[in-house]
Amino acid sequence: MKNQDRGFRIGAHIVLMLLSLLAILPFLLLIIGSFTDNAWAIANGYSFFPKEWSLKAYQYIGQQWSTIGRAYLVTIFVTVFGTALGLLITSMLGYALSRPELPGRGIILVFVVITMLFNGGIVASYFIWTQVFHIKNTIWALIFPNLLANAFNIILLKNYFENDIPRALLESAFLDGASELKTFTSIVLPLSLPILATVGLMSALAYWNDWTNGLYYLSERGGSQYYSVQNILNSMNNNIQFLANNATELAKAGMSGADLPSTTVRMAIAVVGIIPILAAYPFFQKYFVKGITIGAVKG
């Protein structure tokens, strides 16, 4: 019996090790690809073992930093601003809904939950955001559609405030004359840091990785100054010359389109896009796993 258990366990280690490699190696290929010599890559393809290495792709990114650096700033701004604003309005609504005595609470809850069941579809959303709110080709296009708040997070925070914060604490604060806002900011929020971190992390990842809002709401002519890193990557997928097309940028850098190390630079920009996530992953891993687990409880 003992032997059989051990055999099973060794088998589990082997399978999981292989799966881990399968998950990690493709990213290694991406990274190695970005350090490969462009001509070698064209002749021999991307490889784990290139014979000629080069930093050209990154030098090129350095020269194009006015474009890529701006995209980076856009990504950071959108992620920080969107996550902060979303967390703020979500937790305020969650707090109001966590109070059973609030008149009209049931109606507001139904109003929120209906959005989990029905939506108007992509085309209707597109027309509302572009024709009513005119966000096409503005920075708000990356922040407002879909990502700012959702029913799921509202319910999650409402349940936490309702079940995990002792009611007596709120009552004693009110007795001391504290206002709702004061109670919310100085008692409720500090006691809810774990759940706020989890929800905030999920939201930040969604903002960092989003490319669909840019695809729908930023056009290549007119909106490309608001491209995030993901949007740049997406545009280069369709058109590797996307960076090179930017004629004024090229003139400033003193390069022509032919100098573009196109095969390796696309990998380098992808690496630039994933490095912050990979670097931060060990620190947020705990909250990320927690986010998935609580997310699974209710859809």
Binding site: M92, G120, I128, V132, L148, S179
Partner: peptide, 24 residues
């Protein structure tokens, strides 16, 4: 105060989720 706190997110939900329903 509670209604005021709830308002911003409700407005967002109205714009992002309900208006498109009419947009059908």
């Amino acid at each position: 105060p509670l209604y005021l706190m709830a308002l911003p997110c409700l407005i967002y939900i109205f714009c992002n989720n309900y208006l498109p329903m009419f947009g059908i």
